[in-house]
Design a protein around this nucleic acid. Sequence first.
DNA 1: ACCATTTGACCGTG
DNA 2: CACGGTCAAATGGT
Length: 289
Amino acid sequence: MENSLASELARVQTMVRELEANMDRQNLLPAAAREICDELACRVDRSLRMARSWLPAPESPGSADGSPRGHDTGNAAKHFKRRQVLFRAADSQQTCFCRKGVPSVRKQVRVTSVQDTAPMEDGFSWRKYGQKDILGAKYPRAYFRCTHRNTQSCHATKQVQRVDGDPLLFDVVYHGAHTCVQAGAEQLLQQPEQSSPLVLESGGHHAGFEPMTPLHFTSTPAGTDLGIGGYPPLLSPTSLEWQVRSSHAAAGFGAGGGLEVEHQYQELFSYPPESFQWEFQDLYAANYN
DNA sequence: ACCATTTGACCGTG
DNA sequence: CACGGTCAAATGGT
């Protein structure tokens, strides 16, 4: 059913483009009409994206409960398997706002592997301390805190939840910045190419987040920049997510700020590419439900 | 023994 | 009172 919806929308999209091209060729397209065509194309594109996100996943990655482990201490075979998996990381998106006075960063991570992967391997070690079924959500939310909470008083936490409509997509929300020193994280930041287990796919493939305007892939070397509020780049500083942040959120904001940060964020995203904007709005709204 | 995960209970907030 | 977030006892793996 959703499949036919997607194909219908794809057809409409094609027709809009043909119409635009035909009228343009015959000089029948005044500026106002061109705007409408553009708008129409954008909206159909958006609808198509939504329809595709509803499609049932071919296979579900990770644990069925939507809470892949941040630190698999299971049996050796499983551990080995996970380490062997090359999952293509993906389009992700990052937001920054405050909640209860604690700065947080939300990211979306897509894994295209169907294996038991841990999309949140960000160079820090986490310990799971809870899991909750969330009202209206298909998958439970998993709660992680920094392993070094007690030894180094690091109060960084994160929440991971599989996105309802797309089992390959995870919402990862970071709360608080790491104050601990983690060897693995340092290594990741300094030598992302060697230490990152991820194979990045720069094409932004079948994205939950797929900007309509081309992304700018800078060749910025991996530095020691921890990013917004001291959060590590989710995958590595060279990941798509990192480049998206660089190109769309170059202004950056500090860790503190309360509501001010939210406002800065809203301002910053007043003029993003259209699809970027609506994705952000969804995330923003979802987080304040 | 140590460490991490699981999961029901508990608590704060709206 | 419902919901989301955290705690902590039980459990399991190394």
